[in-house]
Design a protein around this nucleic acid. Sequence first.
DNA 1: ACGACCGGTCG
DNA 2: CCGACCGGTCG
Lengths: 279, 279
Amino acid sequence: MQLNLDFGRGLGAQVDLQNISDDQYARIQAYFVPLINDPRVKSREAIGGAFVFATNLCPDANPSDIWHHVLYRTYTREKVGTNPEQSWVRTSGEGYEIALVERYNPVLAAHGIRMSSLISGKAKVSALDRMGLTGRIGGSKVDVMIEKDGAGLSRGRDGFGVVGGIHAKVSLAERVSDDIPASRIMMAEGLLSVLSTLDVKSFPPPHGDLVNRGELGTLTNPSDKRRYIEGHGDFSACFSYNLRTTPSAETTASGRSIYVSGFAGANDHFTDYLLAELT
Amino acid sequence: MQLNLDFGRGLGAQVDLQNISDDQYARIQAYFVPLINDPRVKSREAIGGAFVFATNLCPDANPSDIWHHVLYRTYTREKVGTNPEQSWVRTSGEGYEIALVERYNPVLAAHGIRMSSLISGKAKVSALDRMGLTGRIGGSKVDVMIEKDGAGLSRGRDGFGVVGGIHAKVSLAERVSDDIPASRIMMAEGLLSVLSTLDVKSFPPPHGDLVNRGELGTLTNPSDKRRYIEGHGDFSACFSYNLRTTPSAETTASGRSIYVSGFAGANDHFTDYLLAELT
DNA sequence: ACGACCGGTCG
DNA sequence: CCGACCGGTCG
């Protein structure tokens, strides 16, 4: 469909949402809009839930476009009683974590693997402790914990031990460099340290064309962020749900790669990677 | 004076600006407002220049309060033709660098010391090269270069060599951890690596009281950011221009300290520190 | 309570 | 062109 956008100041623009029909767009709105200001629903839950709903409804659409052009723009237009843009900042990052856990746990459960969001302060403290990272990582630099039954560090009474963590980021900007010191420590401890991103980035009018190309650049013209992974190997792997992100070539200097996939379905690059590394 | 603020949504609030009179406030407005939308003036220059003007006009006021309650709120209210909040984000950080250089260079020149903003891409590349940091720091993680006549690294034809750098941040948030890897490398190279901050942070209504207490916590209840300096020694020193920032005690675990001072005048903690370290 | 979340800007 | 800048939010 063609989505019409209004940027105020007389700036209008149109963006092409591939593999999303007008009817599908309307159904996403019908699901999401009532949740945005519902006092019984945390915004992060509304956003995470709407993303899972929308990517299941439109499995061939670009997940990053759904997030950026549909959910972001709808949320900031509809949110009332608070600063909509800052509320999006505060809640959408956690919404992405929630969506990851909701999306992958049912598939991973069959393999004795479990993901948990570390949004709550105590969950994070306990997880850092179990990874042996307390005091070595400045605060909280891992968002989702990955555990496996019968393996990993600090096995609990339920038999699950910590085998890795996910650094979840909607967009990268310069902020991804925050996560690198923690990631290197985790990898040195034998833990998987995965960068999971929607790689959202478009340039709005009047200068930009709104096409959500992300920030990882290309193989021939890599950005610093691509070099962090393919060159320095600062993460075990990177998974992008922006279909415009250029994936890594078959081999890389560090042996670490960027993988690109949709968000819906059962198995994808991320589950394949976890199963290969953990089983 | 008492400043009345309007946060929309029916939220008004009043903030006490100590050591700023109504007349002084009016003079700052008269200086700053015409520059905000002047196409001949870069916003960072307008902000940096207005800060130097205002801190000279009101030398006993809290510089961080001038920045946060006067310049920030005036800029975002007056800016037109672009998103005012994001324009502030983009330009105010560089405005702070400009103000630092403008404030300190006249005083330091008498001692053969020079500061230069590394805003321009080529200045930054050249500076990183001279510090021996190219490729070792992910991109550009130092904002202002400090040079001394007849000393330091990569002495130029004018006799000035690089002796250190400044990480300039209006506010700290989690973003200060970005600068630590670069800072540690700089210190290992024998360079000064100074964190210079306005330590701006207040909580707006309806939850907060707008008092700009910053983020460094207290000696008895330190924040992670205070620990970075006093505990880990991740920077050579930290200078805050928020008079509400609690300075370090006489001694610290790392031997590194947080110093607090006003912004106007000739010598202050920062110049004392540079002269002690460099002469 | 005090921390980390993210994106339009503009050089 | 493509990077780093910062602050209201809300748990």
